[in-house]
């Protein structure tokens, strides 16, 4: 196993952990945290796999591939923007209904 494959596996583990948290937890802020963990895992898979060797011989590419890095960079900024929007929506939901979870228990 090479270093890129190792970190790609770690990234997938992060995605799976995040998915579990996303499904199991009801609190919306926790769901945001889970989504952020998932996106970190996806970025990790992307960057790690980009370090595989571009040609035979070397196990690991000498310089990092700039294209995935640029895409992950935009991805990180989009993720924080989405988080900000989601937080605004949750604060609004809390102000209007007093709840921080979704679901059909509106009449309690």
């Amino acid at each position: 196993m090479t270093q890129p494959v190792f970190w790609a596996l770690v990234g997938m583990a992060l995605v799976v952990i995040g998915l579990y948290g996303l499904i199991v937890h009801a609190h919306l802020l926790r769901k945001i945290l889970a989504l952020n963990v998932i996106s970190s895992g996806v970025f990790l898979v992307f960057i790690a796999l980009a370090r595989r060797a571009p040609r035979d011989g070397a196990a690991i590419s000498p310089g990092p591939d700039p294209v995935p890095q640029a895409m992950v960079l935009t991805g990180i900024v989009v993720a924080v923007a989405a988080t900000g929007l989601a937080v605004a929506l949750i604060v609004r939901l809390r102000a209007m209904t007093g709840r921080t979870t979704l679901g059909d228990e509106a009449d309690n």
């Binding site: 952020n36 924080v80 988080t83 937080v87």
Partner: peptide, 24 residues
């Protein structure tokens, strides 16, 4: 930084730890 993605590391420190943390 271990994966030699220094640009991403800089952005992650400023955004992932800083801005997202403050937001949450």
């Amino acid at each position: 930084a271990r994966l030699y993605a220094v640009d991403v590391a800089l952005a992650e420190v400023a955004i992932g730890a800083g801005v997202t943390g403050a937001l949450l």
